[in-house]
Write a protein that binds this DNA or RNA. Sequence first.
DNA 1: TTGCTCCTCACGTCACGTGAGGTGGC
DNA 2: TTGCTCCTCACGTCACGTGAGGTGGC
Lengths: 132, 132
Amino acid sequence: MGELLLRIGELASRAGVTTRTVDFYTGIGLLQPAGRTDAGYRLYPSSAVDLIATIRHLETHGVCLDDIAHALHGKPVDVARLLARLEADLTALRLAAESAGPDAQTILAILGARAHALITTAIEIAAASPLT
Amino acid sequence: MGELLLRIGELASRAGVTTRTVDFYTGIGLLQPAGRTDAGYRLYPSSAVDLIATIRHLETHGVCLDDIAHALHGKPVDVARLLARLEADLTALRLAAESAGPDAQTILAILGARAHALITTAIEIAAASPLT
DNA sequence: TTGCTCCTCACGTCACGTGAGGTGGC
DNA sequence: TTGCTCCTCACGTCACGTGAGGTGGC
């Protein structure tokens, strides 16, 4: 159980960001040090490297840091139920699209493309961290 | 074919925004006047009222104005194909989720919830504007 | 004159950082 | 001494407006 702990400089360098960014993320509660040294240096679990990668990934998809922080500290979610809901959504969307005019279809295209991008990202993240 | 045309004040008041906002949207290409009066006053089609409502709707879902403008002026999209792609996405996501750990599932929850919100919005818009 | 519009320049706000600078441990 | 860290205050940037002010038609 000897978990590897990293100081801010090491974490930042492994994650490819600046210490300032790690500091900022820590300040807003996105990252939490596992502890402190006697001198007050923050010590992060090595899993924080992946977490930062995930955060950056989510950011590029327009998820605000606040939402990420909430989800990270919230209770776990029933993914099966989430998937079932999305399936039902799609069926309803198909119905709605059939009776929609050209302008509405353009809007559907924006939202649909976004949903596609989100799900693709979700798949990437899920595939990349099978045991995290 | 006598289409109703609105000046900026009338449009703003019907859409529930300020003339300044209409002016701003027009400036960035989101709205396009159907024409001008001899004195240079912009004349908007009455459909711009709904368009503004749609824009506000999309904005609340984090779609940036640039994306909206592009979609509005881009070529129409094959919605059936979009739906098929989303369906395939869901299947892949289901597979990925099965082998994902708890942290990844949290991320899936954020993205899934976003996708759900997007699709719900799409359905609302499609249902509200059957012939637009 | 009054209210409407046009246009432009500048300022305000919010999210997301980033820089700098002084501090103390290593 | 050197490089690392802590913390704080302020500044930078980008999207999205918003205010103000001078102009001319109605």
